[in-house]
Each structure stands twice: as structure tokens, then as C-alpha cells.
Design a protein around this nucleic acid. Structure first.
Lengths: 234, 234
DNA sequence: AGTGTTGAATTGTTGAACAATCGAGCAAAA
DNA sequence: TTTTGCTCGATTGTTCAACAATTCAACACT
């Protein structure tokens, strides 16, 4: 009954999806320790299956395992952020440059993501807006028509969200980002690809700077929180 | 005793490496069915550990699993080849363009790979030459100084080798490829990056065309071999 | 020839077990 | 007081054995 579709997936995959969602939604914070047995029990699967699911998420970079010390939700370092934004530049900027003869279907996706983005943002749902913000950028990658590139990009974006859950609503003025995305889309839609790429580059630069700034700020005030095991502040 | 290093790795990882090597060396041909129990027994590990190892290789794209039907070594389709070479273009060409202020360490790697490549090729060791050919190209990716990009590229190259094991020595004249790589390196070394990128693009185009051609040829004569289960040629 | 049906083999998943290892608490020593 | 060493409970790494679900091929039946 539960699996009505023909598209059958293994339990391990489903468990992986569930845990992935918990991480991406910020339910499981970066650094959180995941002990196998209780987690497996809470999801009603065996420890072996849970380990298989964890293996998937480790390969995706959402979890880290240190031998005999368990797995934990990955912590995004500043170096990671730098890497990820470089990847975004390498992939997104050429993507818009090949958008000339792109099928209209992808542009519809872009427009759809854009409108959802604006709607959630105006509704002050900043957490939900992240989803559509990244959906917009993911749609750009589809210009390549390359499955491997898309899944890779998706993984990278997943890691990036690890850092964004820490940011949340500290955004000074997220509404200000609306016209940026809109302008990027307009340039793209009207074939002004160079201008589009330039604006996108600027946008990525700003985005990286903002995240980096918030992360350094958060890192400094994290010492007296529950992040580290032994806070020397006591 | 066996693990003298501090760098401990799980058994599953070791098993994955062993199987990966078997595949990349052509011992396990594309399409080969891998039944868990015998393979696990032959390597002296449990079925669970073997499944974990398989999961890794599936995520890497070297194996495919269809539910309840087991795992098999991936077959590279022409579409796959097209995707992979597009990825190579997206990553390798910009890589040489940012090689201006690259650390000399990477250039040493390039030179080393180049010399090994020429040596093995002159020794008529065409299978071994593939290794160094790809090592040369992998070194280009290191210009990015980006761990995620490198591992992704490494995965993609691994998949490409799935197709190359089928090709092997059908190369018309592999020796002719020596001056190409050498010229690419010289352009790079002397800072003529545009010329380098152009030549590299040409090289990738030729390489793709050759592989595609061999694969279509191999596919047509594969029908009466053991490739497909039911050959209608009988 | 075409169509159930059966049954062996393989996979998906579970549950339990045991050794290896870690971490914390506590005692002994400096 | 700080450091060192020890013990012990908890968690992980790995194995093993079992069973349900599913596939595949052979076979019987029409």
C-alpha cells in the first residue's frame, strides 16, 4: 500500500532521504552526533540499514565519520564555503553563456522558481525562500543537459545548505535580493548573456561574502554555546 | 602489523578499492554480474561489508543496481561518453586558463605524468598508458585547488575508463598522441594559455570521436558475443 | 506456440552477537 | 594540584544466521 508506485526504492534509500531532509531543514544541526542504534530504532529499521543510509549521506558530504567515533552532521568550514562558491562560479557562469538555444522548458522552470522565491520571501518565510533561491540556480545548471553535472551540483548545494541553516534570518534585508534574481532572469530571457553572467558573478560574490561574514560572526559567539565540548569560558 | 599507518580505513573501503581496481583494470568487464555472497566469500568479508563496498562503487557510478536483480559493472553508453566529455571540456579548458599563477608543484606533476605516459607508450604498454594519460589530465584539474572538483573529476574519469577497457589496443596509432600531450604541456609551461586551451579542446574532440567510433564498432559486433543474454542472431 | 506454475537462487532486511575502540570517571602517583 | 594509569560502560566495526520478497528459468498444461 505504501509503495504504490512502480518506482521501488530500498529502505536504506528512504531512510537516507528522511535523514537528508532533517539535515537540510535544520532539524539536525551541523555537529550533531548521530548514534546508530537509537536513530535506527526511531525510524523503525535495523542498524545495518541505518548504516547503509549513513554511508550514502557520507558520500554526499552531509555526514562525516571518524572511525570508532561515530558519524556527525558535517560542519561547513570557511574553506568549504570558498570551495563551493568557486564550483558555483565554474558551473553557473558558463551555464548562462550556453543558454542561447536553450529549450523553453528550462526557462519556465526558472520563472517558476523565481516566482516562488519572491512569494515566500514576501511572506517573510526566509527559510523556505532558500529552497527556491537554490532551485533557481539549479535550473541554470540544467542548460548543460548533463545528468552527472546536475547531481554533482545538487550535492554541492546540499552542503552549502549546511551553512545556510546557521544563517537563517540574520539576513539584513533579504527582500533586496528580489530584483537581483529578477534582473538575472530578464537578461537571460532577452539573450543578454554577457550582462547576465556579469550580474550573476556579482551576485555570487555578494552571497559568498555575506555567508562568510555571518559564519565568522557565528563562530566567534559559538564558543560559549553548546558547540564545543569543553568551553574554557566557564 | 598490517596497518602500520595511523591512517585507518574501514574494511568496506578496502574492499571497495579492491573491486574498483578490478573494474578499472578490466578484470571485471562492463556488464559483469556481481553476486554478493560468492564475491564476499572470495575476499574474506561478510555479505554486509560487501554490500557497503558496493554501495560506494554504485555512488561512484562504476556499478549499477536494479532492485532484487543484483549489481553489475556499469555499461558505458554513447550518451554517457558524450556527457563525460562535456564535463571534461567544462572543467579542463577553464583549468588551463587559470594556470598563470599556478604553483610549480603542479607543473612538476604534469611533467612527471607526461614522461611516464611517453615511456609506457613507447614500451607498447597501451593499457598502462591510459593511466598516465588520465593522470596528466587530472593534474590540470589541480589548478583549481578544489578538493570537491578533483574527486568529482576523478569519479568521472573512472567511469570513462569503463569504456576504455573495451578499446584497449585497437588504437590505430597511439604513438601519434605523444606530441599532442607534449605540445599542450609546452604551451602551458610557456604561458600561452589560449593556444593551450585550443589544442586541448581539439585533443578532447579527437579523443571523444575515437572512443565513440570504437564503441559503435564494438557494439555492432557484440551482438553475437556473450554481451546480451539472448542474441537473436542464432 | 503460448501460458500458468513451481522451485531454486539471489537479494533486501532484520536481529543478535562479539571484538575493538573510545571516553569518562576514579584512583594512585608526582 | 596536576598528571598518569586503570577500569568500565557505551558505541562502533564486523560477522553470522535467518527469513521474506522477488527474480528467473524450467516445466507442465492447454
Amino acid at each position: 500500500m505504501s509503495t504504490s508506485r512502480i518506482h521501488r526504492v530500498s529502505v536504506a534509500d528512504q531512510v537516507a532521504s528522511a535523514v537528508r531532509k532533517s539535515i537540510l531543514d535544520g532539524e539536525l544541526r551541523p555537529g550533531a552526533q548521530l548514534t546508530e542504534a537509537p536513530l535506527a530504532a526511531s525510524l523503525g529499521v535495523s542498524r545495518n540499514t541505518m548504516r547503509e543510509a549513513m554511508r550514502i549521506l557520507i558520500l554526499e558530504g552531509l555526514l562525516v565519520r571518524s572511525v570508532h567515533r561515530g558519524v556527525a552532521v558535517s560542519r561547513l568550514s570557511l574553506r568549504d564555503v570558498k570551495e563551493i562558491y568557486n564550483i558555483r562560479r565554474v558551473l553557473e557562469l558558463p551555464a548562462v553563456m550556453i543558454a542561447r538555444h536553450a529549450p523553453p522548458e528550462i526557462k519556465l522552470h526558472l520563472r517558476s522558481a523565481l516566482e516562488s522565491y519572491e512569494a515566500t520571501l514576501r511572506a517573510k518565510d526566509f527559510v523556505g525562500a532558500v529552497e527556491f533561491d537554490l532551485a533557481f540556480h539549479s535550473a541554470l545548471i540544467r542548460f548543460y543537459r548533463n545528468q552527472r553535472l546536475e547531481t554533482f551540483y545538487q550535492n554541492v548545494i546540499g552542503e552549502l545548505r549546511l551553512g545556510m541553516v546557521l544563517v537563517d534570518r540574520r539576513h539584513d534585508d533579504p527582500i533586496a535580493l528580489i530584483p537581483i534574481h529578477r534582473k538575472i532572469f530578464q537578461y537571460l530571457d532577452s539573450g543578454k548573456l554577457k550582462e547576465c553572467a556579469a550580474l550573476l558573478a556579482q551576485h555570487l560574490q555578494d552571497s559568498e561574502a555575506r555567508l562568510t561574514q555571518v559564519m565568522t560572526a557565528a563562530a566567534s559567539e559559538e564558543g560559549n554555546e553548546f558547540g564545543r565540548k569543553k568551553s574554557r569560558a566557564g
